[in-house]
């Protein structure tokens, strides 16, 4: 399997693990804030703001570990640059990912318009961010394997 594909799969798995671990932590420590205080925007603001740096740092650490492990296991070097095909695949995957996030945003706003508890809006926003990241990974894998 080419390095790029392995990197995408690891990135997707790390996204899943980081979100699951963070959500588990929030659910264990702040169960009341999630559902019983539907207008506690401060809690949700902090949750999302903390998730962003936690996610970035965790993924950087996971990618460094992957690069080291991959180097030891396969003696394969990381490509030193991304060429025009890599960039085109990245752009197309990002386009798909953005469309999914926009859809999630509309669903989140729809939930508010329908009078559903506001905490659902935040959950939908976080989920659509995660799903759009997965879509980015799957799109890249698809374009690498099937062509563009």
């Amino acid at each position: 399997m080419p390095y790029q594909e392995k990197k995408i799969i690891i990135s997707m798995i790390s996204s899943l693990l980081v979100l699951a671990a963070y959500w588990f932590y929030i659910y264990q420590n702040y169960p009341a804030e999630i559902t019983t205080t539907p207008t506690n925007f401060r809690f949700w603001g902090k949750t999302i703001l903390i998730l962003i740096p936690v996610s970035i740092v965790s993924r950087i650490v996971i990618m460094i570990l992957f690069t080291i492990a991959n180097r030891i296991a396969t003696r394969e070097e990381e490509p030193s640059f991304s060429d025009e095909r890599d960039k085109l695949i990245e752009l197309k995957a990002m386009r798909n990912s953005h469309w999914i996030f926009i859809l999630g945003f509309f669903v989140a706003m729809g939930s508010l318009a329908l009078g559903i508890a506001p905490y659902w809006m935040f959950i939908i926003i976080i989920l659509s961010g995660f799903i759009s990241e997965m879509a980015d990974g799957f799109s890249q894998l698809y374009y690498y394997r099937k062509g563009i």
Binding site: Q4, P79, F81, D83, E84, R85, K146, G147, I148
Partner: peptide
């Protein structure tokens, strides 16, 4: 030509149309 081996393989297999410059 300054690309990765995978890109050359993709061009040969008709899975990618290179830019005019490439």
């Amino acid at each position: 030509v300054g690309v990765t081996r995978q890109t050359i393989a993709a061009i040969e297999n008709g899975k990618y149309s290179p830019t005019l410059e490439l």
